[in-house]
Nucleic acid binder design. Structure first.
Length: 454
RNA sequence: GUGAGGUUAGUUCAGUUGGUUAGAACGUCGGAUUGUGGUUCCGAAGGUCGUGGGUUCGACUCCCACACUUCACCCCA
């Protein structure tokens, strides 16, 4: 008995219309990446579990998809773990591979394995799906695409600026109004030092990162709950509430951080990046946001986040600098900086704003319709010539009712139909109908190709 | 992992205190129209009412479990 087919939770099919839209996004992003000298790589969908485990924290280990060993995998399982139903121990006995969880760890693994043959600074981009055994909800899937672009092996702040330029170019091309939020991990460290709570930096940044969402009072409540002193919270208030231009904010914060060496370093870095950005004429608004924390564990320098101005959605792009990218694989001294474009969220934004260019969706330009075998043969010759001229064309695969053939063209939103009947064959021409205006005229194949090439 | 809602035709949804044959719109297919789609008119197909169990003379309707799905937390993209 045939059961209704379905797909695993959190996964999606992409129909032709969706693929056209997604490819438009991917192609736009790729073209900009290439323009800045980044080279594409791909890594396998599956990695050794030893590569993945322990890189994303305990939560991350739980969210990894594991792949059962081939063959009779239970023969290698110990009786002890089977008897005790010890899933974690059993896992290591029956699974050695897992699906990639992000693109950064496989990239680090790639760099370590190929470091002898790579030219540094190495500029790479990578657009591939990743998998997480998460509970799906709005904007969260178990299979989704990441578009990562990173430079590894260079400490220059120009790399940060180039990433800002890439963001600027990509969203300009896509027609999305965005604001880039910029911060620096060193400034956050400095703030924690000045507050006298340097060891609580993670609690502090996690709390102030929620400012937009839960408000100042709840942030302070959370800080107090984490054991931050009232005096320290008091010192934080003017920093959180800071207003003004980026320049004014930098001046204020450098005074606040006067006693923190690392904090001042962060201010200096940020100032350099902003100056570069201004000189190079970045059109996108770049806002210094001292409450931006974002994935604090990895990042050690600049932190970026991009938000769409016209749509209520989380960040659509984010990243930052992380020293010691490859340290976990035994190679230290390589610093990286990169950002990741969230293709699925960008897709949602473009859908809501209806920003797809019309020509993007056009596939077939003309459909040939015929009435009998003689016309069909003639039309096949015409079709060949039209395709050779580089025009996307098709023929209805059998001579049948006009209505049916027209409906087919209409259903695919094909802009032109070439009608081939007895009189057209005799004249050696086709009746070209414009499906939008309804106008039609008798044309030769040469005239047809020149009309459609416009 | 925690909490709340939902699941009826391809899609979006109605469905009366539990009562004969479960409806609509859109879409699909056919015809009106044998050389003209998108508009109009006529007709048809399409449902184990998420799955399994329970209560009942009788369940789409009430109860339980599970699956799937949406939303909010946690975390993240």
């Amino acid at each position: 008995m045939a059961t209704k087919p379905s797909i695993p939770k959190g996964t999606r099919d992409f129909a032709p219309m969706e693929m056209a839209r997604r490819n438009y996004i991917f192609d736009t992003i790729k073209s900009v990446f290439r323009l800045y000298g980044f080279q594409q790589i791909e890594t396998p969908a599956m990695e050794n579990l030893s590569t993945l485990m322990g890189k994303y924290g305990d939560e991350g280990d739980k969210l990894l998809f594991k792949i059962l060993n081939s063959g009779d995998f239970l023969t290698h399982a110990s009786q002890e773990s089977l008897d005790n139903r010890d899933s974690i121990k059993l896992l290591h006995e029956v699974a050695e591979k897992g699906l990639r969880y992000d693109l950064t760890v496989p990239f680090a693994r790639f760099v370590v394995m190929n470091k002898e043959s790579l030219t540094f600074p190495f500029k790479r981009f990578q657009i591939q799906p990743v998998w997480r055994a998460d509970k799906p909800q709005k904007g969260r899937y178990r299979e989704f695409y990441q578009c990562d672009v990173d430079v590894v092996g260079s400490d220059s702040l120009l790399n940060e600026v180039e990433l800002l330029q890439i963001v600027d170019d990509v969203y300009h091309k896509l027609g999305v109004n965005v604001v880039v939020k910029l911060n620096n991990r060193k400034i956050l460290t400095g703030i924690a030092e000045v507050m006298g709570e340097a060891d609580k930096i993670i609690d502090i940044t996690v709390a102030i990162d929620k400012l937009d969402k839960i408000g100042i009072e709840n942030v302070n409540a959370e800080l107090a709950e984490k054991g931050i002193s009232q005096e320290a919270i008091g010192k934080l208030q003017p920093i959180i509430a800071m207003k003004g231009t980026n320049q004014e904010k930098l001046e204020t914060i450098s005074k606040v951080l006067a006693t923190s060496e690392i904090g001042l370093k962060g201010v200096e870095e940020t100032s350099t990046i902003l100056n570069y950005a201004e000189e190079l004429g970045i059109n996108t608004e770049v806002e210094l946001d001292l409450t931006l924390a974002r994935g604090l564990n990895y990042y050690t320098g600049a932190i970026f986040e991009v938000k769409a101005k016209d749509v209520e959605i989380g960040s659509i792009t984010g990243g930052g600098r992380y020293d010691n990218l490859t340290g976990v694989f035994g190679v230290s001294g390589l610093s990286g900086v990169g950002i990741s474009f969230g293709a699925d969220r960008i897709y949602d934004v473009l859908n809501q704003l209806n920003l797809y260019p019309a020509e993007m969706l056009q596939g077939t330009q003309v459909v040939f319709t015929t009435f009998g075998d003689k016309e069909f043969k003639f039309a096949l010759q015409c079709l060949k010539k039209v395709r050779q001229a580089g025009i996307s064309a098709e023929i209805y695969p059998e001579p049948t009712k006009m209505k049916k053939q027209m409906s087919y063209a209409n259903g695919k939103a094909v802009p032109f139909v070439a009608i081939v009947g007895e009189t057209e064959v005799e004249a050696g021409k086709v009746m070209l109908k414009n499906m939008t205006s309804g106008e039609q005229k008798l044309v030769s194949i040469d005239e047809l190709t020149t009309t459609l090439k416009k």
